[in-house]
Simulated scan of single mutants.
Amino acid sequence: MSVPNSIRRAAVVLTATSALGLIVAPNAHANWSSYIASWGQGEESRRWADESYSQLQFTGCTVEHGSNNVTVAYYRDVPLSTDPKEDSKTFTACFGSGTSNGEWTGLASGDWYFRAESIGGGGLLNVTTVSVDTTQAD
């Protein structure tokens, strides 16, 4: 028994539409919090939409098999192109009982993420609380 052409076309359109929805799914917007467990050098955060300002905070940092510092860089996510790097910041205050804070201003509108550029002595990074705040007013 053959399937009519109209049903086949409808199935193809439905499948293509569903796939497109997954491809263009929106990134997380604005402020968020999470944690980091056993990150190595080069690991990347999730993406979020931003317009001009971001503040990144790490609280409760430890490095397995390394020294107490981590350098993170902000990148703009540019589809089908090399992601431009904005700037790097080295965090040390989050080791022990403090919080490390990095601020980036004048960011281009778009999707952003941070990446572990280096982790003290090549160890693995753990952070109890990671926060991204895109509201400069606070």
Score class of each variant (00 low, 15 high):
M1N: 13
P4Y: 02
N5S: 03
I7M: 12
R8A: 10
A10D: 06
V12T: 02
V12W: 03
V12E: 02
V13Y: 02
V13L: 05
A19L: 14
L20Y: 14
L22N: 13
L22G: 14
I23G: 11
V24M: 07
P26I: 01
A28G: 11
A28K: 03
A28C: 13
A30M: 12
N31L: 06
N31S: 10
W32L: 05
S34F: 09
I36F: 14
G40H: 03
Q41D: 07
Q41G: 04
G42Q: 07
G42K: 01
G42W: 03
G42S: 08
E44R: 13
S45H: 04
R46W: 04
W48E: 00
W48T: 00
W48F: 08
Y53W: 14
S54Y: 01
S54E: 08
Q55C: 10
Q55T: 08
L56N: 10
Q57G: 06
T59S: 14
G60L: 11
G60I: 07
G60C: 09
V63E: 02
V63N: 04
V63G: 04
V63M: 11
E64H: 06
N69K: 06
V70A: 08
A73T: 15
Y75P: 04
Y75A: 12
R76L: 05
P79F: 01
P79S: 08
T82N: 13
D83W: 01
D83K: 01
K85W: 12
D87N: 15
S88G: 12
K89C: 14
C94H: 03
G96D: 15
S97A: 14
T99I: 15
N101I: 15
W104E: 07
T105E: 02
T105F: 02
G106M: 11
G106S: 10
L107R: 01
L107H: 03
S109T: 10
W112R: 00
Y113D: 04
Y113A: 07
Y113W: 09
F114P: 02
F114A: 01
R115W: 01
E117Y: 03
S118C: 08
I119N: 00
I119E: 00
G120E: 03
G121C: 07
G121W: 09
G121V: 10
G122T: 01
G123Y: 02
G123N: 06
N126P: 09
N126F: 04
V127H: 01
T129A: 08
S131M: 14
V132H: 00
V132W: 00
D133W: 01
T134D: 00
Q136N: 09
Q136F: 02
Q136I: 11
A137K: 02
D138H: 04
D138T: 08
